[in-house]
Amino acid sequence: MSAPAASVIAECLRAQASVAKRERLARVIGRSPLSADSRPWYLGALGELDVARRLAALGPDWAVAHSIPIGTRGSDIDHLVVGPAGVFTINSKFHEGARVWVGSRRLLVNGQKTDHIRNARFEASRVKKVLTDIGAPPVVPIVAVVGAREVVVKAAPIDVFVLRAEKLTRWLAKRPVVLSSDQLSAARQAIVDPRRWGVQVELTAGDYERFAALRREVKGAKRTRLAWALGALTGVVTAAFSVGLPPALKLLGY
């Protein structure tokens, strides 16, 4: 099957290909090299890569496939996991520094409604149809949240699990066993059978190198912006002290 984040990396590189290189001033002030079109794909790739790295820590009884194409419209499943505890679809969502609120029917990011729960449920139903012939139990949908400042579960959805990415593998490993050895073997073979899925996205070594270079550039721009912000703050504090402290503070020994 495809490598982790293959689909979103491919779309990110496609969108980024039309973006002009930053001029010197843009680099000096730390402007992001990402465009409005490439940024969502880039963040999606970060989320999928993070979750894929964590899923690699599952034991040998587990099988994991990534970027699984399903249907004919370019849709894919971020991660499909099979183990003694059953079959799970995982939808990775990168929300760095955000506040995530989970209710029984919706998931909000910084107060904004999302379709995460609905989409996760739909993906699981599609995979269930593909695997019907192997007699596997219902496919369990998961939304894995990456990088959020906080995740508050006010009322958990009945049929979709919302988890912080860092808790994902432990949660899976602690789930009760529901598959027999025969069911597990059949499910493991099914998720890597290309005849069941759509056309796979294949990335070249050059694609990975371009994405890695883009990632370094984005990180460098972020460090530059932070340096400018820190410099500005230092300047404000220095200016405040240069005009002299209030008499009351002087009496206190400042």
Results as ranks from 00 to 15, higher is better:
1 M>E: 03
2 S>P: 15
2 S>Y: 02
3 A>T: 14
4 P>L: 04
6 A>V: 05
6 A>Q: 01
7 S>R: 06
8 V>L: 06
8 V>G: 01
8 V>T: 08
8 V>Q: 03
15 A>Q: 15
16 Q>M: 11
16 Q>C: 10
17 A>K: 10
20 A>T: 09
20 A>L: 15
20 A>R: 15
22 R>M: 06
24 R>D: 12
26 A>P: 03
26 A>G: 09
28 V>R: 13
32 S>P: 00
33 P>D: 04
34 L>F: 10
34 L>W: 01
35 S>V: 01
36 A>T: 13
40 P>H: 10
40 P>E: 06
41 W>L: 05
43 L>S: 08
43 L>R: 14
46 L>H: 02
48 E>D: 06
51 V>W: 07
51 V>Q: 06
54 R>H: 13
60 P>D: 15
60 P>I: 09
60 P>C: 10
62 W>L: 13
64 V>C: 13
65 A>W: 12
65 A>V: 15
67 S>V: 08
72 T>P: 00
73 R>N: 15
73 R>V: 09
73 R>A: 15
74 G>L: 10
74 G>T: 10
74 G>Q: 12
75 S>I: 01
78 D>E: 09
80 L>N: 10
82 V>H: 03
86 G>Y: 02
89 T>I: 05
91 N>S: 15
92 S>F: 01
92 S>Y: 02
93 K>N: 04
93 K>T: 01
94 F>Q: 04
94 F>R: 04
95 H>G: 01
96 E>I: 06
101 W>T: 15
108 L>A: 10
108 L>T: 04
113 K>L: 11
113 K>F: 13
114 T>E: 05
115 D>Y: 06
116 H>D: 07
121 R>V: 04
122 F>Y: 14
124 A>Q: 03
127 V>E: 01
128 K>H: 12
129 K>A: 12
130 V>N: 00
132 T>R: 15
133 D>M: 01
137 P>K: 11
138 P>N: 13
138 P>A: 13
141 P>N: 01
142 I>Y: 12
145 V>K: 00
147 G>F: 06
147 G>M: 04
148 A>R: 11
149 R>I: 01
150 E>Y: 09
153 V>H: 06
155 A>C: 08
156 A>Q: 15
161 F>C: 08
163 L>Y: 12
167 K>I: 00
168 L>S: 01
168 L>F: 07
170 R>A: 14
170 R>S: 11
172 L>G: 02
175 R>H: 12
178 V>M: 05
178 V>Y: 09
180 S>M: 07
183 Q>I: 05
186 A>V: 08
186 A>F: 04
187 A>V: 08
192 V>Q: 15
195 R>Y: 02
196 R>E: 02
197 W>M: 03
201 V>N: 06
202 E>H: 14
203 L>S: 00
205 A>I: 09
209 E>P: 00
210 R>H: 12
214 L>G: 00
222 K>V: 01
222 K>G: 02
223 R>F: 00
230 L>T: 06
232 A>Q: 08
235 G>V: 02
238 T>W: 12
238 T>P: 05
240 A>L: 10
241 F>A: 13
241 F>E: 05
245 L>F: 06
245 L>H: 08
247 P>F: 02
250 K>S: 03
252 L>H: 05
252 L>M: 11
254 Y>F: 15
